[in-house]
Design a protein around this nucleic acid. Sequence first.
RNA 1: GCCUCGUUGGCUCAGCCCGGUAGAGCGAGUGACUUGUAAUCACUAGGUCGCGAGUUCGAAUCUCGCACGGGGCUCCA
Length: 637
Amino acid sequence: MQLLLIHSDYIEYETKKQTPVAEKIEDSLKSGRLEEALTAFMAVESADETNPEETIGKAVSEIEKVASQVKTDRIMLYPYAHLSSDLSSPKVAVNVLKGIEAALSAKYEVKRAPFGWYKAFKISCKGHPLSELSRTIRPEGAAPAVCGEKVVVAEEKEEVVSEALKAEGTARSYWRILTPDGELHEIEGFDLSPYPKLQQFVDYEISKSRAVKEAPPHVELMRRLELADYEPGSDSGNMRYYPKGRLIKSLMENYVLDVASEFGAMEVETPLMYDMNHPTLKKYLDRFPARQYSIESDKRHMFLRFAACFGQFLMNHDMTISYKNLPLKMIEMTRYSFRKEQRGELVGLRRLRAFTMPDMHSLCPDMAQAVDQFMQQYKLCISVLDNMGIDLDDYEVAIRFTKDFYESNRDLVNSMVKTVDKPVLVEMWDTRFFYFVLKFEFNFVDALAKASALSTVQIDVENAERYDISYISPEGKAERPTVLHCSPSGAIERCIYALLEKAAMETEKGKVPMFPVWLSPTQVRIITVSEKHMEFAEKVSKRLGCRVDIDDRELSIGKKIREAGREWVPYVVVIGDQEVEEDTVNVTIRAESEQKKPMKVQMTPEELKERIRAETAGKPYKGLPLAEYLSERPKFL
RNA sequence: GCCUCGUUGGCUCAGCCCGGUAGAGCGAGUGACUUGUAAUCACUAGGUCGCGAGUUCGAAUCUCGCACGGGGCUCCA
């Protein structure tokens, strides 16, 4: 039996004409209406004939379950033959319907539309996630249907939902574990116990089991460290960034751009909003699983970009590109990309509605070079995350591809797994649902076992055609390139989230949390024992030549030390009489300290400077985001 | 979007069940102390109790609606 359940404001029907299999009914049943009802459209199938009683029982329990979820006690049973291409005999169907009606009548107000009539009906679907559900019910032992998936989309309430979002509900995929030896394993039976993080990721992706009571630890940290905060004056998922958060973000953004530039990508900038009715964009919207912000602008209907694809592809379309220019790479640091994620999905910095994402696209002449580029970019992503403080142990790899692609590119996929040298999760589609044939993501698994994607690369085989992008081949002919999408780090905010969650997990394990030195808002904090040491402190600050601040507040040494620790300052320098005399500094090195066991070292300012220089070599640098003297700093929280 | 819990000085929270002039700690300001490694002492200021409506002689407290946040569902780069 096929069941389609719609929670509706109302449902009404009116019989029009009998079919040859029509049941006889009284006039009172020729039309009907229910307010606030769960409507069950149903088609009884031939498989149900083997055991109609069982079908009735299962259908009743499904309907009751949904009725209680949506909290309604009115049910409309509506025979709807179009749900199946393999119907039962009318006699069985009527018996099953009557059986369901009888069983439900005890607890619910039930109406049943007559069987075998052409009927006009009106329904108003409520549109919440549980309001539209479909179920397939089969007696034990009956063979599963082999016909193609059916997508039934009830009338949506004005909301623009892309076809890709709808299709995703029906995409058929297979999950496997791929090990570095190139073997594909069924998930059931594969021993994941040596890989607890992968286990958590697999659970998250597949069984979708997640029971969490607390707020994720990064939410408190992002506020306590004065990095970022909610902005009630904006839409949910649009954050404010305080100076320290802005500094970290800015350094990360610059780092990714530097790396991309070195990799040969040209930085560009494209508009934030686009015309919803632009013919090319409309089609692309339908292929991307995201919800958009939309904006009414005079008579045009605009949407906010959710990536830089549009802008770059439209630019590519207008360009004259020779095969000599390939692979052609462009990058934009999208500040912002907008996605109107569902409200309940937004948490801290993990998932936002406005986020900063490096978006790089590479045009390749053919699949061979695309595959080569893909591997280079895969390695680039590993290196970028590593340099930002997120290493291979902190995330799990997911590789997704179509069956066809895998079969002709096993070597590529296997060498990806060898590169990370640990089992990865694989998802294989039997047909291509999306614009890509191959993609990977690095999924960070947080302190509460929730996973979210960071870096990703995808091989796109659709958009060159859609945007009419071409290059001129050596033979002088226009050819379609293959396009790669790459976000080397993933969303910048999400990288900050990952660092904070990682720090929280390390704190749990008894370690001392910190940011990489190149990202630390304060790299060295100078604390003076008394006012008379200020002059020397200022000299030391200049000699260090990095982000040094001076705690000149009238507080006890103990308190200043404690606060420097709470801010995760990597080097805390205390200056008193001894240091002034010896021209040295006493440094507490956070990276080498343990909880309650600080690592204190006496060294010259130049030694400390050299140490920091070595640790931050090759990374972007910016000055202090706040006043040098702590007494001059405002509090943001 | 749905369910559920929450919203009280800048921050963290008590008070709400059982309606009667709003409390603490931290932070801030001022003063004392001039300090050697995880919270120095004293005083002072600071509150439309998220917003709107209702019940009541009287609402932080009871009821309803809305906004924002946490968790769950759903969904997902």
